[in-house]
């Protein structure tokens, strides 16, 4: 994907062209997926990979280094990237669930142990659904969760993207987190 196209799309998004966001999403999605897979498989001297790092790298790769200094479409890109990350994760969890229920007929069992990954996936899928429901009733709170949880922005940064004060952002987050945990039956209740 030539970077100027992405730049143009971002400009269009900034100008408020809805279709541009739709076109941008699959590009970001693919890039995130690719990056994540590459990162996690190859040797990485760093510690845990932070989603923000991933998003930034996706941005650099898609938009190009020169443009990044003047990050016009930054907030739009972040919003798109957070959504893309959510999709990547959900798709991944769904695929794994499908694989699990599908014909993985020779699953090797050494010991009977609960599979923590499965729980995690189920929780992720539940969170996705609950977040969609929350978006219908309280779009701002849902957007904040998406930026923070999937986009890797801090609560404060995410609030800034949405034009919220620091205090408001934290209050929104506190509410949304508590609400969603109740919705998905979080064991930490």
């Amino acid at each position: 994907m030539p970077s100027h196209e992405v730049t143009q799309l971002l400009d269009a998004v900034t100008r408020g062209a809805a279709h541009a966001a739709e076109q941008l999403l699959p590009l970001v999605y693919e890039e995130l997926r690719r990056l994540a897979a590459g990162y996690l498989d190859c040797e990485n001297p760093g510690h845990t990979l932070q989603p923000t790092a991933l998003v930034h790298e996706a941005y650099l790769r898609l938009v190009g280094g020169e443009a990044s200094a003047e990050w016009q479409g930054r907030s739009h890109f972040l919003a798109t990237a957070a959504l893309a990350m959510r999709h990547v994760l959900i798709d991944n969890a769904r695929r794994k669930r499908r694989d699990k229920h599908g014909g993985d007929r020779q699953r090797v069992e050494l010991v009977d142990q609960p599979d923590p990954a499965t729980d995690e996936d189920e929780r992720l899928l539940a969170l996705d659904e609950a977040l969609t429901r929350l978006a219908n009733a309280d779009a701002a709170a849902a957007e904040l969760v998406q930026l923070h949880t999937f986009g890797g922005l801090s609560v404060e940064e995410a609030g800034k993207q949405l034009g919220l004060s620091r205090a408001t952002a934290y209050r929104q987050w506190a509410f949304a987190r508590a609400w969603l945990r109740c919705e998905i039956g979080d064991p930490r209740q």
């Binding site: 994540a36 990162y39 990979l49 994760l89 991944n92 695929r95 794994k96 996936d121 949880t149 945990r181």
Partner: peptide
């Protein structure tokens, strides 16, 4: 009650979760 527990909605960084499976 759940508010008493700080922390995130996801158990791990989402990018780390991708590696599972």
């Amino acid at each position: 009650q759940t508010h008493e527990n700080s922390g995130e909605l996801l158990p791990r960084a989402p990018s780390a979760m991708l590696a599972e499976g």
